Computed example of a mutant assay.
Amino acid sequence: MLQLPAKRTTSVALTAALGAAALSFALAGGTSATAAAPPSVSGSPEGAFTRIADFYGAYIDAVYDGDGRTADRLRSFYLSESLQAELRQWEEANHANGVLRAQNVPLKWKVTSVDSGMGKTNASVTLTWSGDTTTTVHVQADLRTKKITSIRD
C-alpha cells in the first residue's frame, strides 16, 4: 500500500476539507460550484430573425452614442423603404423615435422570436428603461429580403 509522507497527507486532507467547505458554502448561498459560462451572442447573416436582433442592438448603440448619421444608415440598410416612410410619418405625429416608440433610449433590449410563416418572421423586442420599466414592440421581417417591414406597439 502506498504511504504518503505525513506533510503531504496533511496538505491533501486540508485541501479536501477546504474544497468541501467551499462547496457547502456555495450550495448554501444558492450559487453553483461550477463557473458560470461567459455571455455569448450568435447569429447568421442568412436569418431574418438575426437581422432584427442585429438591427436593434446596433441602432440602440448608435442612438445612445448620439450618432444620428449611423442610426440613419442602419435604418436605410435594415428597414424596407415603405417602413422608413411610415416611421417618418409616425415620428412627425408623435414627436418620438418610431423604431423605439419613445423619446429616450432604452438601457437594455431583448429580441425574442415569436413565429415564422407566410414568408415573414415575427419577433417581440422588449426594451428596458430606467427603473426597470419595460415596453414591447412587435417587429416583422421579410424572409426573402431580410428587411424589417413592420414595427408595431
Results as ranks from 00 to 15, higher is better:
M1L: 12
M1H: 10
Q3D: 14
Q3T: 15
Q3I: 15
L4C: 03
L4S: 05
A6D: 10
A6V: 06
R8V: 15
T9P: 10
T10L: 14
S11Y: 05
V12I: 14
A13T: 02
L14K: 15
L14V: 15
T15M: 13
A16T: 10
A16C: 07
A17L: 10
G19M: 04
A20N: 09
A20R: 11
A22E: 07
S24M: 11
L27R: 11
L27T: 08
G30V: 03
T34M: 01
A35P: 00
A37K: 00
A37N: 00
P39F: 09
P39M: 07
S42M: 06
G43L: 13
G43H: 10
S44D: 02
P45W: 02
P45G: 06
E46Q: 13
G47F: 11
A48D: 05
F49D: 09
A53W: 12
D54E: 00
A58L: 10
A58G: 01
D61L: 12
V63T: 15
V63S: 12
Y64T: 13
Y64K: 15
D65F: 06
D65R: 12
D65K: 11
G66H: 05
D67I: 00
G68L: 09
T70D: 09
D72I: 03
R73I: 04
R73L: 14
L74K: 00
R75A: 00
R75G: 03
S76L: 11
S76N: 06
S76A: 09
F77K: 12
E81G: 10
L83R: 01
A85W: 11
E86Y: 15
E86W: 14
L87S: 00
R88A: 15
W90G: 01
W90I: 04
W90L: 05
W90C: 04
W90F: 13
E91D: 03
E92T: 15
A93I: 07
N94D: 01
N97G: 09
N97C: 08
G98R: 08
V99P: 00
L100Y: 07
R101V: 01
Q103T: 11
Q103N: 11
N104A: 13
P106T: 12
K108V: 03
W109I: 15
K110V: 10
K110F: 12
V111H: 08
T112Y: 03
T112V: 02
T112Q: 02
S113Q: 08
S116I: 05
G117R: 02
G119V: 00
T121G: 09
A123F: 10
A123V: 00
V125A: 02
L127W: 10
W129N: 00
W129H: 09
W129Q: 04
S130E: 10
S130Y: 07
G131F: 01
G131I: 07
D132W: 14
T133S: 12
T134A: 09
T136Q: 13
T136R: 11
H138F: 13
Q140F: 04
A141W: 08
D142K: 07
L143W: 02
L143F: 03
R144N: 15
T145V: 13
K146S: 10
K146I: 08
K146Y: 08
I148T: 06
T149C: 07
I151T: 07
